[in-house]
Design a protein around this nucleic acid. Sequence first.
DNA 1: TGTCGACTGTTTGTATATAGTTTTGCATGC
DNA 2: GCATGCAAAACTATATACAAACAGTCGACA
Lengths: 248, 248
Amino acid sequence: MTSKLPDEDIESAAADVSTLKKRGQGVQIVYDSLRQAILELTLEPGSPLDETRLADQFNLSRTPIREAMVRLSAEGLLLTLPNRNTIVAPIDFVNLPFYFEALTLMYRVTTRSAAVHRRPEHLIKIKSLEASYAASVARRDAIAMIATNRDFHVAIAEAGGNHYFTQLFARLLDEGRRVLRLYYQSFDDALPRQYVDEHSDMVAAIEAGDADTADALGAAHAAQIVRQIQTYIARDTASGIALGEVLR
Amino acid sequence: MTSKLPDEDIESAAADVSTLKKRGQGVQIVYDSLRQAILELTLEPGSPLDETRLADQFNLSRTPIREAMVRLSAEGLLLTLPNRNTIVAPIDFVNLPFYFEALTLMYRVTTRSAAVHRRPEHLIKIKSLEASYAASVARRDAIAMIATNRDFHVAIAEAGGNHYFTQLFARLLDEGRRVLRLYYQSFDDALPRQYVDEHSDMVAAIEAGDADTADALGAAHAAQIVRQIQTYIARDTASGIALGEVLR
DNA sequence: TGTCGACTGTTTGTATATAGTTTTGCATGC
DNA sequence: GCATGCAAAACTATATACAAACAGTCGACA
């Protein structure tokens, strides 16, 4: 199965804004579009990006395209092969254990910090995103679920106030969006409901300022996710299908 | 006091390689030069960078200069003001407590992980850098001390094997280089000797595979550094000098 | 004398052109 | 049938050109 070129998807995203782009906005539009396409797997891991083609699709010159690509490379979402082309960073299943380790630590640290440093405006935002997540679970909208779940936890991290943690955590959650996207493609919605409850408990602990409980809930939440993904991968690897497309 | 333009410093660095630069090397050279200049405070925090001038100094066009600057911005070492100029990122003394929090956690996590995952080739590299650090302390070479100390701890993080931790830790240590540079300007060399001993203990714990001891030593090492910098800043803030230049 | 506004110079953001490298396809020889 | 070498195409890295935005200055007017 040869991977088709997802020209139309990106092109449509570009066409929406091609008329009202101003000086200084071009790079941002390209960056946002590509980033979203990568994280939602519209652009498959490993697929090549051609500067000239993207320039045509976005109605820009190659210069802002390159700048957006450099930024995405710096974040690890793209891989630049010198004098060769640039590809979407493959999902690194080999290092998944280290990913889980980092993710778990950040879940704990950010939730704990939020319980200590949260202020009213943080709680408002967190609760709003908690509701958005619950709504997307009710709608069984997998893409919205993944995106709002990410935003929910980033909001908690922001309440913690430590910019270094927030940034690493956001990067981990984004990276995780790609794995989760694979994951959610093949299972019922029983577990997301469980997440809704866990989110609710976390918010309560944060609001109460109970750092230890928040920490424990963060750890449990992380363990939950890790266990599910591991189960999924084990099952999938055993049957030997589907992942081959992405592993390459 | 108006900040002088450190043209010559960067220019000399550029001149060294201007003759033997090849396609694909230009951006890397600019990136490395600027990065080093920023971290060693040759380029003062807050000082502006002019693309055209840098292009002249490096004998390149503005395109590779911009690309290097975009990468440095993504790492937080530069601050881009849209349609205005780009400046060296100021040192954020306000968020220093969060910096210390992150640094301490990473010291603990990386040292612990190293004790678990280290392999012979890691130990060889770590010991080599430990010796380099001791040598630069003996020479009372502050710049080398700071740089090798950074490399020593990054090597430990690499032995831990978790790329996410290594990357955050390296970024924190680099950011710290700028603070330490201020710090080392005004004190005797008694404390670096203490660091040499602490490094030695850490290596021993890592080699023995004693994770808990390694963790504790990492925490103690971090606390040591934090306490010293806090003392320095408190004293300096009290006297009201020197920091004004950088705080702006 | 102070304030507002147009003008000018400087610098960035984007477009286009040029040069150099890698890949790919084909042809030729073994 | 397969390997090897050459040529052309494709694409990237860098250079240059152009246009928009902002900062500072000077002058007009209140």
